[in-house]
Each structure stands twice: as structure tokens, then as C-alpha cells.
């Protein structure tokens, strides 16, 4: 949003950018990155040269940010990375459900114990 003079004398408006919420993909955006000295990135994004700690993160990034410019090969990499991640997420969500059940039970019985 360009900085415009706001009639009431304040310029508060210029910094209210809602880009990240309204824009779907931001291929031109450069997120500042820094690689620790004792690490070597496993992959760099072919479009924006952003470093990644694993190949999979790089492939996922292609789908997050570069859908308009990716090659068929990159698309395949993204899809297989997405499926891998889905498998991991499924296991993770099973753990989350058990944690939630555990928390609910712990509190229910504590309250039952306190109130009786």
C-alpha cells in the first residue's frame, strides 16, 4: 500500500499492510535467511535461491510460493513431498488426539476429586 497523506495529519495508515493475508502467493517476496556456520543447506530454491535444511522443505516451498513458474518435475517433487508430509501429519494427529483425551481426563477427574 503506498504511503498517502491522511487528512487528519496522521500517517498511521501507511504501515497497515495486509498483504500476507490477502495475497495467496508471493513469489517475489524475499524472506531474510541465515544459515548457521556449522550447517550446510541441503537444497536451494531454484527460483528464489532460498536455502533449506532438507530437500523436502525445499520441495514444499515450491508449492507454497512458486506455483506459477514451476516445471513438471518440480511439481512432481512437491506432490511426493506433500504426500510424505501428510503421512507424518497423520501420525502426529493421532498423538494429538491421545494428548487431548489425556488432558480432558486429567482435568475431569481432578475436578471430580476436588468437588467431592
Amino acid at each position: 500500500m503506498p504511503t498517502e497523506y491522511v487528512p487528519d495529519g496522521s500517517t498511521e495508515a501507511d504501515e497497515h499492510s495486509r498483504q500476507s493475508i490477502t495475497a495467496n502467493t508471493r513469489p517475489t517476496e524475499r524472506v531474510p535467511t541465515a544459515v548457521p556456520d556449522d550447517e550446510t543447506p541441503a537444497a536451494w530454491c531454484p527460483h528464489c535461491a532460498r536455502p533449506f535444511a532438507t530437500e523436502r522443505l525445499c520441495a514444499l516451498h515450491l508449492g507454497d510460493r512458486h506455483r506459477d513458474e514451476w516445471t513438471a518435475n518440480q511439481r512432481d517433487r512437491y506432490e511426493s513431498a506433500y504426500d510424505d508430509e501428510s503421512n507424518e501429519l497423520f501420525i502426529f494427529h493421532l498423538k494429538v488426539i491421545s494428548a487431548l483425551v489425556g488432558v480432558f481426563f486429567a482435568f475431569t477427574y481432578t475436578y471430580a476429586f476436588v468437588w467431592s
Binding site: 497423520f90 493421532l94 488426539i97 480432558f104 481426563f105 475431569t108 477427574y109 475436578y111 471430580a112 468437588w115
Partner: peptide, 27 residues
């Protein structure tokens, strides 16, 4: 997979409500 998740959710809600009823019933 999502069916499994939904079923587990329903089970946990049912267990939770059941235990809450049981707990308040004893009070």
C-alpha cells in the same frame, strides 16, 4: 485416514462427556 480421525474425535468427545457426567453425578 480422516474417517479414522473423525471416529477418534467422536470417541474422545463421548468419553469426555461420559466421564464428566459420571464425575458430576458423584457430587
Amino acid at each position: 485416514r480422516y474417517l479414522i480421525c473423525v471416529v477418534l474425535w467422536l470417541c474422545s468427545v463421548w468419553l469426555f462427556v461420559g466421564s464428566a457426567v459420571a464425575a458430576t453425578g458423584s457430587v
